[in-house]
Write a protein that binds this DNA or RNA. Structure first.
Lengths: 206, 206
DNA sequence: TCCTTACTGACCGAATCGGTCAATGACATT
DNA sequence: AATGTCATTGACCGATTCGGTCAGTAAGGA
């Protein structure tokens, strides 16, 4: 990987990165042409090979970068130092949405990478992305304390409901290519508000 | 399209159809190789071209067939002659799940077809699939009568919650290649039960 | 024996893809 | 002005892939 890639002005470098995210998330690794990435980034294929010595290097760089930028965003959005369950959930969604502003296809790219089957890639992807750090495993760590919720509520079902609804919403928008981060954030805020009122012990407040 | 294709025994014909669904739903139309479909169906590429005169004909046949078989299932499951909102919703989900038993990739195929961008295919796909007949437009026609639900409930949000959660669930299972129709149906029944209790006016019953 | 029909493997021309390379132009140094 | 460095390109290459064809084969029925 050539150093000059990092000396590039941000907008030009991001254009290449986003082109990579887009192409690799639309096709399989093997069926993703370097030529298409170059064209979409507005540079020649040769130059792309000047920055990255081959396709594999570009792909793995994008993997690393996607993880890096996600973690960075999680920290900036201070996702963890909230104690209210609904606030934590919302801040997690905000990160996803915020990231889409800069990298619309990042989340799809990560998902595809997670399921990529290419033999010579699989081990390295595992090393980079590791366990999928989605929401579904966080149920326990989110401090679900029964006292705060309505009587007789099935907390597990509540969590699944919220998790799947969020995923379903995001997935539909991505499929529709209807990516409007600000609208998404508003939708999520409204959705969380709906749930908070529905699930909380005292729903006559607010 | 050769008649002999229809004279095939069901299992052999379905093997070809499912191979087509799988390949076309994994890749774009253009990047879906006839050879891969043939191999997965256990026949020679030549024979596939004996049944269908070219790739386009096979693809469009699969489009027609997917619509046909879906409508058939909707009728058999008598989706429409139910009056309770939750029952209607559940029967719709049951159709999807039931279809997966015979054609695991059908729903993904239809979705991909809906978003396929190939120029010479686009108009014909529109003619065959038409408006996407998902759940999201059915909200009004499902007879949502306020009296039946809890006080002050935002019915639109309730519907969106249920719709997106179902989509999110299905989508995750499809991505994970974790397709177990019976388990899915049980999950849906449980989920609908949760919602019914949560949203209904008298939730002390049941 | 002859005809039809289901089916195959070998083959073809065209396109695509990953990757290379010589050349060019911009710019800084001498 | 001459030299050197480096970003950038288009043309090119060999390998592979892909849609589609075709001659041929094996099976069965007339």
């Amino acid at each position: 990987m050539n150093d000059s890639f990092f000396q590039l002005p941000d907008n030009k470098r991001n254009k290449i990165i986003n082109a990579g995210f887009r192409v690799f998330s639309q096709y399989t690794y093997k069926k993703s042409p370097m030529s298409e990435i170059a064209a979409e980034a507005g540079i020649s294929k040769s130059l792309l090979f000047y920055y990255f010595k081959n396709k594999k290097e570009l792909y793995l760089y994008l993997c690393r970068y996607s993880v890096e930028v996600t973690q960075q965003a999680m920290i900036e959005q201070n996702c963890y130092d909230n104690e209210d369950f609904f606030d934590v959930f919302l801040s997690g969604l905000k990160v996803k949405v915020q990231l889409m502003k800069s990298y619309p296809e990042l989340s799809v790219f990560q998902l595809k990478a997670y399921y990529e089957k290419d033999k010579e890639l699989r081990p390295e992807i595992n090393r980079l992305i590791g366990q999928y750090s989605g929401f579904e495993n966080q149920a326990d760590s989110l401090g679900l304390k029964k006292e705060k919720f309505a009587d007789g509520l099935d907390l597990e079902m509540m969590y699944k409901d919220m998790y799947y609804a969020s995923e379903g919403y995001l997935w539909e928008k991505l499929q529709n290519n209807d990516i409007d981060p600000d609208k998404m954030e508003k939708d999520f805020v409204r959705m969380i508000g709906f749930w908070r009122k529905l699930y909380s012990r005292n729903n006559n407040e607010e």
